[in-house]
Design a protein around this nucleic acid. Structure first.
Length: 434
RNA sequence: GCCCGGGUGGUGUAGUGGCCCAUCAUACGACCCUGUCACGGUCGUGACGCGGGUUCAAAUCCCGCCUCGGGCGCCA
């Protein structure tokens, strides 16, 4: 088994063993072709019925589509073959037969609904364009890690079973922890901040977050991958620089290293990494620009959160990624620091893609007394967060950070219609398996 | 959580009360075919989400349930 050759590596003149899935059998009568597919591509296996052993031909042609077969034979140059080479088999083994009635068609001749695809994800991933999404996803995460390392960050892993949430209790999944109430973490927020007070100073984490919101949209998951950053002695502008750097690194890595995958997705020609730096628009200016588009029935006033319609109007107006900065304090969480000069304003920022929000971040409140005050103002009991707040008494430097939605990044980079396409086994309101 | 729209062979669909023992494509089965590359040809198998109701008559109308998708709120 270890001696097998990838179909893409089979060179004319070699004797090889190729193994993979039966993509298709084309039986023309006296001659037949079996198209064998593996992770690297496809190769044609030729069966000439008059010239080959009957048992060999029979074994090769009775294999149902998507069965796993192993073929040993000579690779020959053949201009009439799809890839210019074909295998003339000496032996064929059916390694794992497939039921001829498939729940979806991996050759893609007939579309399947997303729900059908997710129920049969293994078969779905046999399609080139689906395989490409997850190869690109891996490349995006690799590039993000590399960029964080360039920013002197240490990768960390924080607990996913926690005693308290970040912003209240309504959107947490409760679990039982040895008889005690506990929750799945909705964000590494508080833990990564604690690390900003450690000698690590700058940290990042790529890990799961869990949110019990009963939303059902093409851009929400109940289990998502959060790409988090927190840095000591950073302000909101520094954090925005890092966020922009990571997003741009992801685009650039895909552009440079994923040509084949972009081709499979049919977006190679139009794919462009952003070249202009992302404009930083204040909340106040954002509202003015949204109102000026005339897209909304009612004008926004200062203090309103931005509805989806407003985000879309502004996204169309800007035409690319952009930050919204200087949000009103009252619509940002307690741990976001207020502006030095105007306590109505916060240092919170969002990084927007024209289609949706990608990042939320800001400078944090690092002064103990003001942090406790912030808890109380938002109706939270500081005592429940003592494990967090007490570390602000022992030298917590000013710090800032952000959370970036991993699936949203993949989705917006590739122009996917539904965020579920960017996860192997998505968790949503209805779906708990596979 | 609120609102809207769907569920028809394995898969994806057509079908707005009788022309429907239900269309087309693909898949599947059989047969024919020596260069296919979405191979082609002939024949065949296979379906109205579940339960109730209206009607002479229901895939089609009504009610409930299950289920899928979308919009909003909120968010990453």
């Amino acid at each position: 088994m270890q001696d097998r050759t990838y179909t893409a590596d089979a060179e004319p003149g070699e004797d090889v063993t190729v193994a993979g899935w039966v993509h298709e059998v084309r039986d023309l009568g006296g001659i037949a072709f079996l198209i064998l597919r593996d992770t690297s591509g496809k190769i044609q296996v030729k069966f000439e019925k008059d010239e080959m052993d009957d048992d060999l031909v029979e074994t090769g042609l009775e294999a149902a589509r998507e069965s796993v077969v192993s073929v040993t034979g000579a690779v020959e140059e053949e201009p009439r073959a799809p890839t210019g080479v074909e295998v003339v088999p000496e032996s064929v083994e059916i390694v794992a037969p497939a039921d001829p009635e498939l729940p979806l068609d991996p050759s893609g001749k007939v579309d399947a609904d997303l729900s059908t695809r997710l129920d049969n994800r293994t078969l779905d991933l046999r399609k080139d364009e689906v395989q490409a999404i997850f190869e690109i996803r891996a490349e995006i995460l690799r590039a993000a890690r590399e960029r964080f390392r360039e920013f002197d960050c240490t990768e960390i892993n924080t607990p996913k079973i926690v005693a308290t949430g970040t912003e209240g209790g309504t959107e947490l999944f409760p679990i039982t922890y040895f008889g005690r109430e506990a929750f799945m973490n909705q964000s590494p927020q508080l833990f990564k901040q604690l690390m900003a007070g450690s000698n690590l100073e700058r940290v990042f984490e790529i890990g799961p977050i869990f949110r019990a919101e009963e939303h059902n949209t093409p851009r929400h998951l109940n289990e998502a991958t959060s790409i988090d950053f927190e840095g000591a002695f950073c302000d909101a502008d520094d954090a925005m620089d890092v966020a922009e750097g990571v997003v741009r690194a992801a685009y650039e890595a895909v552009e440079e290293n994923c040509a084949e995958q972009l081709e499979a997705l049919g977006i190679r020609d139009e794919f462009d990494a952003p070249t202009e730096s992302f404009p930083r628009i204040s909340y106040e200016e954002a509202i003015e620009r949204i109102n000026a588009t005339g897209e909304l029935d009612e004008q926004l006033v200062w203090g309103d959160d931005l509805p989806t319609e407003a985000e879309k109007a502004l996204g169309d107006d800007v035409g690319g990624h952009y930050f919204i900065t200087e949000w009103p304090s009252e619509i940002k969480p307690f741990y976001i620091k207020d502006d030095e000069d105007d306590e109505q304003l916060s240092t919170g920022f969002d990084l927007m893609h024209p289609r949706m929000e990608l990042v939320s971040g800001g400078q944090r409140e690092h002064r103990y007394d003001l942090l406790i005050e912030g808890f109380e103002q938002q109706g939270l009991d500081p005592d429940q967060f003592e494990y967090y707040t007490k570390m602000f008494k022992y030298g917590m430097p000013p710090h800032a950070g952000f959370g970036l939605g991993g699936e949203r990044l993949v989705m917006t980079i590739l122009g996917l219609e539904n965020i579920r396409e960017a996860v192997l086994f998505p968790r949503d309101r209805q779906r708990l398996s596979p």
